[in-house]
């Protein structure tokens, strides 16, 4: 099994391994995230109604209102966040979720991770390790 390690910056600590769910588009919260159901409700979004509970949620960047933190709320939250670019929306989200969260990688994780890959997010030691699904 092919493993790829990428170093990045810890936002919120912890270490967890889970299957990746990759959002090709930026994610948006507030009314376009339903934490009770555990999926995005943004119209036309590739992850519309795709559950993220227990997944490593991989996305390019956050967008929209402060309600982005909905992705970190409730029982159905992801196992970890991995995102290419950051802004204060992602900071608030990590603080609501208290799950491993990483950004600012040496290689863009969006170019490496596909939905279904297993991803170890070791935020404490500052890296992610991807096991390709093959």
């Amino acid at each position: 099994m092919r493993k790829i390690r990428i170093y990045g910056r810890k936002e919120y600590g912890g270490c967890v391994e889970a299957e990746a769910l990759v959002s090709p588009k930026p994610l948006q919260g507030f009314a376009n995230c339903n934490p009770e159901r555990g999926y995005t409700t943004e119209r036309n979004h590739p992850l519309f109604k795709v559950p993220y509970a227990g997944k490593v949620l991989v996305y390019p960047s956050p967008r929209g209102s402060g309600g982005f933190m909905s992705y970190g709320r409730g029982q159905l939250k992801p196992a970890a966040f991995v995102h290419t670019e950051t802004c204060p929306l992602a900071v608030a989200c990590a603080m609501v979720a208290h799950i491993p969260s990483m950004t600012d990688f040496e290689t863009d994780p969006m170019t490496v991770i596909e939905t279904g890959d297993m991803v170890l997010v070791n935020a404490d030691e500052g890296y992610i390790e991807i096991t390709k699904k093959d």
């Binding site: 507030f30 009314a31 376009n32 995230c33 339903n34 409700t41 943004e42 119209r43 519309f48 109604k49 929209g64 209102s65």
Partner: peptide, 9 residues
């Protein structure tokens, strides 16, 4: 426009 439809998925 872009948010309100999220309440009706």
């Amino acid at each position: 426009s872009y948010y309100i439809t999220g309440r009706y998925p």
